[in-house]
Design a protein around this nucleic acid. Structure first.
Lengths: 350, 350
DNA sequence: ATGAAAGCGCTAACAA
DNA sequence: TTGTTAGCGCTTTCAT
């Protein structure tokens, strides 16, 4: 576009620990001791070293340190496709926790990954001390590969394959769904409740569906198989499913969508059919993701503590790296968020 | 929570280039040549080396290579607070571009950063070859610091301070705003158009506002200062401003919100006042961010090519790192997205 | 309390 | 075409 500019080669050649040593009149060993606060160093020496460090703007090179101590002080976050809004909350939790623990954070999406070779995986033992693996971002085969090499791995939203002792952290999906269903049934008296399931391979999806069945059974309500449709955690897919129900004039009191995205799709389809939410049909979601509160009507949903999921997951990973131990399983509680799309009379405060 | 588990120390001690050399019966130099595809190596040797590499699962250690070649093959992305949904789109573009260029991606939020010392910045010359800097994530002082050291920097949504030749990439905010205003005025005949401005320090915000003024002037419409209110790119702030207008019964045909978030806030406030969008007051936004199309009514807005912004920005950075040259300024075109909140009769297709 | 020196794993200049 | 070797910048052991 615009004219190029020319850059000279770096004005300042890298300053190394040797420069600091020379300048401060001590050995590199002492510099290292001061910077890493290890070993005994005279108070005055410490001060002189720090002064020099600042004076000449010394910053230790990570690669050299890493090579020497055989640690990268870096963790990796693996994600399938970067697109679902909850990933930003997750990332926020992950980033802050890693930073607080003194680890750098490498992030890699594996969706259109096409590494010719295991050599060239973007992230792994060669450049990280451990990996945080979001469901769907790594094949079971690869998980096993790392496990066999005892490389620290923490799984998010996914339990360990083959019951291996790989630490993982998941949401309380079933009880969350159960709470939602109880609300729909007990408070509103809905009986004909449809369910929009997520991807069948997803554990979150699976447990939410189980919660739906469990609640129906507990309240002696029959599940109409025709009212369990595909939502795929996708707005468009859900919309299509609900559109079909609308066309068939299906008898539905409420739709429990497997996640907020599909809930949006459901609402859109219902409006398209000229009906109202929640007056004609209630719609509720799961996750309490971005903007659900600003929906019209504001969406009743189950809050997933996504940022916390990221934070805790990262804390587990760091602990695993440093002590080789971690909780094998962490279950994060979910919370019912009642707004108006279920038929309640909630008023948004701000 | 659950019982801890014990992990043994790594079963497999790291395999190094020496192991491959020994096993394949050649020198480490040859291994290096094969892996990096540099220099002349006999076809059969190449095959033998690769076979060995796979057999013993050799992965070159990034730190060692980095130390030797004095490059990290890593780039950093600096962001203020990880929260605005557009950041995910941005990150997607950045991540894919960096991966395609063979760079690892370090990400760091600088919001609640509290490094005691420049030594311990999370990201910089010590662990990256260059930095992608999102507006608001770095002080001018720090930008200057890096600039003086000729450390590769590309700015996103922010022009270079002091007209320094630091490459940057921004959106066509003014012309986008202008297009939107022209639509509002020429197609809908609105005259009393309010504007919800973003943070005054933000360049995006500034240019969008300029586009508003320019369009008003071009159409010989008077700007009513009372109708230029604060929105801060924030739903709640915008809502409050519009709520005030509603209470005052201000004469408004349309509200042009500086971004989609504030547009949402505006819509909420209008509904709260018992009025309809767009029948009573039209509302339009800027960015075409997540879920705007699913709004009720679907939001008319200006699309910002955020993912492209990330991709292109990263490509510039890589070019800057590798050739020391980059376009000094890139302007990314925006596009008017007409839906229904402006009063048009758009039907969502899916 | 401080310094000398070895060596982490890799690349590249030079030699063969 | 292949091997030898020095050395990147740092930490750490062992002296002193």
């Amino acid at each position: 576009m615009n004219p190029d500019r020319e850059l000279t080669s770096p004005k300042v050649s890298r300053v190394t620990i040797k420069d600091v040593a020379r300048q401060a009149g001590v050995s590199t060993a002492t510099i290292s001791r001061v910077i890493n606060k290890k070993g005994q160093v005279a108070k005055e020496t410490i001060d002189r070293v720090w002064a020099t460090v600042h004076e000449i703007n010394y910053i230790p090179q990570a690669a050299a340190k890493g090579l020497r101590i055989q640690k990268t002080q870096t963790v990796g976050f693996l994600v399938g496709e970067l697109s679902a809004p909850f990933q930003l909350d997750l990332l926020r939790g992950i980033e802050s926790a890693s930073r607080e623990s003194g680890y750098s954070l490498l992030i890699q999406s594996t969706c259109r990954e096409s590494f010719p070779d295991h050599l060239f995986r973007g992230v792994g033992e060669h450049n990280t001390d451990g990996l945080l693996v979001l469901v769907g971002s790594m094949t079971e085969k690869d998980i096993l590969y790392f496990y066999e090499r005892d490389f620290p791995l923490v799984l998010i939203c996914q339990s360990a394959p083959q019951n291996l002792p790989i630490p993982y952290i998941v949401l309380e999906n079933k009880s969350g769904a159960r709470k939602m269903m109880d609300h729909l049934i007990e408070i509103h008296g809905y009986c004909r409740i449809a369910f929009l399931r997520g991807p069948s391979s997803q554990e979150d999806s699976h447990w939410r569906e189980q919660g739906y069945y469990e609640a129906m059974e507990a309240h002696h309500l029959a599940v109409d198989p025709a009212l369990v449709g595909i939502g795929e955690f996708d707005e468009k897919v859900a919309k299509e499913t609900v559109r079909k129900w609308m066309n068939e004039n299906a008898d539905i009191d409420a739709i429990f969508a497997g996640d907020d995205e599909s809930a949006i799709g459901a609402i859109l389809a219902i409006h398209e059919a000229g009906k109202r939410v929640p007056e004609d049909i209630a719609v509720v979601g799961f996750d309490d993701s971005y903007l659900t509160h600003a929906n019209i009507p504001p969406l009743t949903t189950v809050r997933s503590p996504i940022e916390e999921l990221g934070r805790k997951g990262m804390q587990q990973l760091v602990q695993l790296i440093q002590t080789r131990k971690a909780d094998s399983k962490i279950l994060l509680p979910t919370e019912l968020i009642v707004r108006r799309s279920c038929g309640c009379n909630y008023i948004e405060r701000d």
